[in-house]
């Protein structure tokens, strides 16, 4: 359940932003989570609700935008869409495909008041 640590990380980013940008409540947190990152969106939602209790983000909606996975195929040399780290190249069926996009996770924006 490393999503709990990650949810704590999200909350800290929100709190830092509240200090810098002077807001008092957060209504929506927009996350971008890569398809190939090591985080499960549903677990993240569950954990975020738990850690946000009693904070300026209590009750906030967590919106998750999924960033598509992308990889470089070592067989055909093309940059291709990739749904999972272990998938073959959708263009030529070869291996390996090195993940090049959709591996990150970040807080994009907040709706605040």
């Amino acid at each position: 359940m490393h999503e709990l640590s990650l949810a704590e990380g999200v909350l800290q980013i929100v709190e830092d932003a509240a200090r810098e940008q002077k807001f008092l409540r957060v209504r929506t947190v927009v996350l971008e989570i890569g398809r190939l990152s090591s985080v499960e969106s549903e677990a993240m939602r569950f954990c975020f609700d738990a850690v946000a209790c009693g904070t300026l983000a209590e009750g906030a909606t967590l919106e998750v935008i999924e960033a598509p996975g992308e990889g470089l195929c070592f067989s055909c040399g093309k940059t291709v869409p990739l749904a999972a780290l272990y998938d073959p190249c959708p263009a030529c069926g070869g291996y390996p495909v090195q993940a090049t996009g959709g591996t990150g996770m970040r807080v994009r924006e907040l709706e605040v008041e």
Binding site: G9, Q12, I13, L31, R106, V107, E109, L110, E113
Partner: peptide, 17 residues
């Protein structure tokens, strides 16, 4: 009634770690 606004953040979730 309250006014809300959007704040751009663009920070990696693991940035503290």
């Amino acid at each position: 009634m309250s006014q809300s606004r959007m704040v751009q953040i663009e920070r990696d979730i693991l940035s503290k770690n």
